[in-house]
Simulated assay, not measured.
Amino acid sequence: MTAFRIAIVAALALTTGGAMAETLKVGIAAEPYPPFTVPDVSGNWSGFEIDFANAICAKMGDTCEITPTSWDGIIPALTSKKIDMIVASMSITEDRMKTIDFSDPYYNTPAVLVGAKDAPDYTGPDQLKGKILGVQTATTHQSYADKHFAGIADIKVYQTQDEANQDLASGRIDYVQADILPMTDYVNTETGKACCRIVGQVEADKAILGNGVGVGLRKGDTALKDKVNKAIADIRADGTYKTINDKYFTFDVFGE
């Protein structure tokens, strides 16, 4: 290597804090999940988590390559190195931590039940007796429903949240359980306003619902985990996170 080429390599290293920039494949769920991930007609993605992923990659001096992946295959895609990290509203749970690692939380919101406009406020599991409850497959909400509502409600599992919402709107099911943010977005759509409302939050169960949402990372990838955690702290400190937050929400989605 010539002295000139060595100098160029050294200069590039300095611009990235002593390490060469990487292109990181960021796994998101292939299904739309507004306001977190939303595709346009050309297949370009936008939303809170797209902006968040790009912001932390910029802080790390790396480039994000958004990689849509089916939700039920997103952890296998990570462990098989088809993607480098998951930014897909994945709750940090003990069960998932047996397979993958997580960054520090980057948002934390409760789970809610959504029913018909004339449905009563939620007061407890007995209210779902004889009702049909829709949940998305391979989510913490399915796990929660299986533990707390099995034998009470008829639990119907969907591949996507959109499918569950459609059946709720058409009256084919009585309730859905999901995160408050996308469901707030849904009940404010034209369809959602006509059919449905949030009837209440489910009781806390951190063992299932987790301790917030984190970036999913491969076991043992401590260097990337440290970089991601520092990037999250940095965008919180410099106001970048607040700018992204305020673009999509009227409150601090970071939570407690």
Rank of each mutant, 00 (worst) to 15 (best):
T99S: 13
I74Q: 00
K81C: 10
A111I: 01
S46P: 00
A55I: 12
S42I: 04
F48I: 07
D118E: 13
W71N: 07
A55K: 11
D72M: 03
G61P: 13
I75T: 08
T67C: 06
D101R: 01
A58W: 01
T79Q: 00
I86A: 03
A111L: 10
A77M: 10
L113V: 00
L78N: 07
S80W: 00
D51Q: 06
F52S: 12
S46F: 04
K82S: 13
D101N: 11
P76A: 01
T99Q: 12
S46L: 04
T67P: 03
S46M: 08
D62Y: 07
V114Q: 10
Y107F: 15
I92W: 08
I83S: 01
I86M: 01
K117C: 06
D118A: 13
I56E: 12
G61H: 07
P39E: 07
S89K: 03
I50N: 04
A53W: 10
M90W: 00
D72R: 09
V112C: 14
T99V: 12
D51L: 04
K98W: 00
D95R: 06
A58D: 15
T99N: 10
D95S: 14
F52P: 13
P68F: 09
A58I: 00
P76E: 01
S103V: 09
D72P: 13
E94G: 14
T93E: 04
S42K: 15
W45P: 00
W71C: 03
P39C: 09
K98Y: 00
E49W: 04
F102I: 05
D101H: 04
P120V: 03
S103Q: 08
M97H: 04
S103F: 01
T63K: 15
A53I: 11
S103W: 02
V41W: 04
I83N: 05
V112Q: 12
D104K: 15
G61D: 06
D84P: 12
T93G: 11
A116I: 01
T63W: 02
S91Y: 12
I56F: 05
K117P: 10
C57T: 12
